Simulated assay, not measured.
Amino acid sequence: MSAMLGSHSTIDCWLARWPTRDGWDWVRATLGSALAVDAAALSIVRDEQGKPHFTGALREWHFSLSHSGGRALLALAQDQPVGVDLESPRPRRRLLDLAQRFFTAAETSALRGLPEEERLHAFYALWTAKEAVLKAAGVGIGYGLAKAGMAWRGPDWVVDQFADALAPAAAWQLQRLDLPAALLGHLAWRGPQRLVQLIDTTC
């Protein structure tokens, strides 16, 4: 697949079917095509947090990957660390117990106040927003989802109060991506606004 990158200020995203085998072959092929580099020549390593990144001549480029429900979401940006998270919402038992474990008291209260038919969707929207932020910051879930505090501004969450190395929240951009109804996904980055281009190859 060949894709034309946007400008330096653009963040390019791809939604695709996630191969049951050799998913990273698709990642390499997509990134190689976008960067006009032989996929086999891409030098990708993982840091101590497990986050993959380029080395060598492409180290100014940053990418993030998430997959769920047989779909994959990939983001690529120049001179800008990014994070994406994708989820295929499915019913969860004891949803509010999970919220109390991972989210802030204010977030859990907001979820509790929603009609039950809206709560599951809002839970996954919050999860993907938080995880996208942590990925962009180069840390994992173990760093603490609660440190990326969000506020409910129906129909979505917005950045609110970030703690420790994530602060200040005002420095962050968070965008919910326009995905098929069965999926929820967010893109996050710390820095000025950028144009986001989403390429859906699942159609």
Rank of each mutant, 00 (worst) to 15 (best):
Met1Arg: 13
Met1Asn: 08
Met4Asp: 13
Gly6Ile: 07
Asp12Arg: 00
Ala16Arg: 14
Arg17Ser: 14
Pro19Ile: 07
Trp26Thr: 12
Arg28Met: 10
Ala34Phe: 06
Ala36Val: 13
Leu42Gln: 04
Ile44Leu: 06
Asp47Tyr: 13
Asp47Met: 14
Gln49Glu: 14
Gln49His: 15
Pro52Phe: 10
Pro52Arg: 07
His53Gln: 13
Gly56Ser: 10
Leu58Ala: 08
Leu58Cys: 08
Arg59Tyr: 01
Arg59Leu: 01
His62Met: 00
His67Thr: 12
Leu74Val: 10
Leu74Pro: 01
Leu76Asp: 03
Ala77Cys: 06
Pro81Gln: 01
Gly83Trp: 01
Pro91Asn: 09
Arg94Ile: 02
Leu95Trp: 09
Leu95Asn: 08
Leu96Phe: 06
Leu96Pro: 03
Ala99Cys: 08
Phe102Asp: 05
Phe102Ala: 02
Ala106His: 15
Glu107Thr: 08
Ser109Cys: 14
Leu111Ile: 07
Pro115Trp: 11
Glu117Asn: 13
Ala122Met: 09
Thr128Trp: 05
Glu131Met: 05
Gly138Thr: 01
Gly138Asp: 01
Gly144Ile: 00
Leu145Lys: 05
Met150Asp: 00
Ala151Glu: 13
Arg153Phe: 10
Arg153His: 14
Arg153Ile: 10
Trp157Gly: 00
Val159Arg: 03
Val159His: 07
Asp164Ala: 11
Leu166Met: 09
Leu166Ile: 02
Ala167Thr: 07
Ala167Met: 07
Ala171Lys: 11
Gln173Ala: 11
Leu187Met: 08
Ala188Ile: 03
Pro192Asp: 15
Gln193Val: 12
Val196His: 02
Leu198Ser: 06
Leu198Met: 11
Ile199Asp: 07
Thr201Cys: 09
Thr202Arg: 08
Cys203Glu: 13
Cys203Trp: 11
